[in-house]
Simulated scan of single mutants.
Amino acid sequence: MTDRDFQSVPVVDIADLASPSPEARRLVAERLGAAAREVGFIYVTGHGLSETLFQDLLVAARTLFAEPLERKMDWYIGRSANHTGYVPEGEEVFASGKIDRKEAYDISLDCPQGDASAPMLGANLWPDLAGFKQAVSAYYAAVAALARRLFAGFALALDLPEDHFEPHLTRPPSQLRLIHYPFDAVPSPDQEGIGAHTDYEFFTILRGTAPGLEVMNGQGRWIDAPPVPGAFVINIGDMLEAWSNGEFVATSHRVRKVAEERYSFPFFATCDYHTVVAPHPRFVGPGRPARYPPIVSGEHLYAQTVRTFAYLKARGVAAAEQAAPAFGQAARRAERA
C-alpha cells in the first residue's frame, strides 16, 4: 500500500476492455488497478457510451427538478416500497447532523415482482413526465452494462479470473441518483453540497455538469476533481475495499459549496443483495490478517440508508447491525496515527 499522496486523478482509456485480446484487456486492467491502489478515483474514457444518452438524461433531470415542490412530492421516496423516488432537501441527514444542499431522484433496478428479503429491490416509482422513464431507463441500462465491464476489469486488476464477480451480478440493486444542486449566489460558509463520505457499494460511475467534487488524498488534503468532457469518474466503494482487504481503498470525497447550479448522476454499482463480502483469500496471509469481518452487501447498504433517510426513521425501520469497520482514506490515516 502507498501513502496515496496524489495531486490529481488519473485518466484511463478502457476501450480495450472490450477487446478480443486477453493481453489488451489485462493491460487496461493493470492501469485500472494502479489507479485504484494509488488514488481510488479514476477518470475513464473509451467507454463507448453515446453522449446522446447523457444529454437525454440531463434534459429529463432538468424537467423533473423544475417542477413545483408540491408536484415533486407526489413522487416522494417515502411513498415507495423499495427506496426509489424524489428526495427533497433535508430528507438526508448524515452522522455530522448537517443537511446537504441538494435534491435528488433515486432509481434502482426495476423489479416489479420485488423480493421480500431484499428491501432495495422492487418496482421503481416513476414520475408521470413525458419521456422521463424512457431517457432514464436507457441511461441506466447502458451504465449498468459499463459496470459489468468494469467489474471484469477490476477482477483482472486484482489477479482474479475475469468473470470472478459474475455469479454475484444476477439482480444487483445498483442505484442511479439524479442530483440537483440549486444555484446559491451566497452559499453558507459551513454548508457543503455533500459532506465527506465514502460510497457504500463496490464502485461508483459518475457524470456531472460542473466542478465541485473533491477527493481526499493520503495526507488528508482535498484534491479537485472537475468534470473531464466525455469521461466518467469512477471511485472505489466500501465493498470493493473489503473484498480486496484494503488493496483498493474507498477514497473519501465531498462536494464543496459552489454558487453555480449543478447536476450530478452517480451510478452506485453493487453486487446482489445477499452477497457476503469478506477479504478474498488471495489478500489474506501471514502478516496480512483479514481487516474486515464478513458483511452482507445489501444489508450494509440498507443499514447506512436507514441511518440517513428521515422517512425510514419515521417508519421505525431497523436495519441489520453488522460489525462493519470504518472505510476510506480518513480511516487509514487514523490507523497510522
Rank of each mutant, 00 (worst) to 15 (best):
residue 6 F to R: 01
residue 6 F to L: 00
residue 8 S to V: 01
residue 9 V to D: 03
residue 11 V to G: 02
residue 12 V to T: 05
residue 12 V to N: 03
residue 14 I to E: 04
residue 16 D to P: 09
residue 18 A to Q: 15
residue 24 A to L: 10
residue 25 R to Y: 12
residue 26 R to N: 14
residue 28 V to H: 03
residue 29 A to L: 01
residue 30 E to P: 07
residue 31 R to S: 13
residue 32 L to H: 05
residue 32 L to S: 04
residue 33 G to R: 01
residue 36 A to K: 00
residue 37 R to H: 10
residue 39 V to P: 00
residue 42 I to H: 03
residue 43 Y to L: 09
residue 45 T to K: 08
residue 54 F to I: 15
residue 56 D to C: 06
residue 56 D to K: 01
residue 59 V to H: 14
residue 60 A to H: 05
residue 61 A to N: 13
residue 61 A to D: 09
residue 66 A to V: 10
residue 70 E to D: 15
residue 72 K to V: 05
residue 72 K to P: 09
residue 72 K to C: 05
residue 72 K to S: 09
residue 74 D to C: 15
residue 77 I to Q: 14
residue 77 I to N: 12
residue 80 S to L: 08
residue 82 N to Q: 03
residue 82 N to H: 10
residue 84 T to S: 15
residue 85 G to V: 06
residue 88 P to N: 05
residue 89 E to R: 15
residue 93 V to C: 13
residue 97 G to F: 04
residue 102 K to Q: 07
residue 102 K to H: 02
residue 105 Y to C: 03
residue 110 D to C: 01
residue 111 C to Q: 14
residue 116 A to P: 00
residue 116 A to I: 09
residue 117 S to C: 10
residue 119 P to D: 02
residue 119 P to V: 05
residue 120 M to G: 09
residue 126 W to A: 00
residue 131 G to D: 15
residue 131 G to H: 12
residue 138 A to S: 14
residue 138 A to Q: 07
residue 140 Y to I: 03
residue 141 A to N: 13
residue 143 V to Q: 02
residue 144 A to H: 13
residue 147 A to H: 05
residue 151 F to T: 02
residue 151 F to A: 07
residue 161 P to C: 10
residue 162 E to R: 12
residue 163 D to C: 11
residue 164 H to V: 04
residue 165 F to A: 01
residue 169 L to W: 01
residue 169 L to G: 02
residue 171 R to I: 11
residue 173 P to H: 12
residue 174 S to E: 10
residue 180 H to V: 10
residue 182 P to D: 07
residue 182 P to R: 03
residue 183 F to P: 07
residue 185 A to P: 11
residue 192 E to D: 14
residue 193 G to D: 11
residue 195 G to I: 01
residue 196 A to D: 01
residue 206 L to P: 00
residue 206 L to C: 04
residue 210 A to Y: 12
residue 212 G to V: 02
residue 212 G to C: 07
residue 218 G to R: 11
residue 224 D to W: 11
residue 228 V to P: 02
residue 232 F to E: 02
residue 234 I to F: 00
residue 236 I to L: 07
residue 238 D to G: 04
residue 240 L to P: 09
residue 246 G to L: 00
residue 247 E to C: 13
residue 248 F to M: 00
residue 253 H to Y: 07
residue 254 R to D: 04
residue 254 R to K: 09
residue 255 V to N: 04
residue 258 V to F: 00
residue 259 A to R: 13
residue 267 F to Y: 14
residue 267 F to S: 06
residue 271 C to W: 00
residue 273 Y to T: 15
residue 276 V to Y: 12
residue 277 V to W: 00
residue 278 A to N: 09
residue 280 H to C: 08
residue 281 P to N: 08
residue 285 G to F: 06
residue 287 G to A: 01
residue 287 G to W: 02
residue 287 G to K: 01
residue 288 R to E: 07
residue 300 H to I: 00
residue 300 H to D: 06
residue 305 T to W: 08
residue 307 R to M: 11
residue 308 T to I: 13
residue 312 L to Q: 11
residue 315 R to V: 08
residue 316 G to E: 01
residue 316 G to H: 04
residue 320 A to D: 12
residue 321 E to P: 07
residue 323 A to P: 02
residue 323 A to S: 15
residue 324 A to I: 13
residue 327 F to P: 01
residue 328 G to I: 06
residue 328 G to D: 05
residue 334 A to S: 11
residue 336 R to V: 13
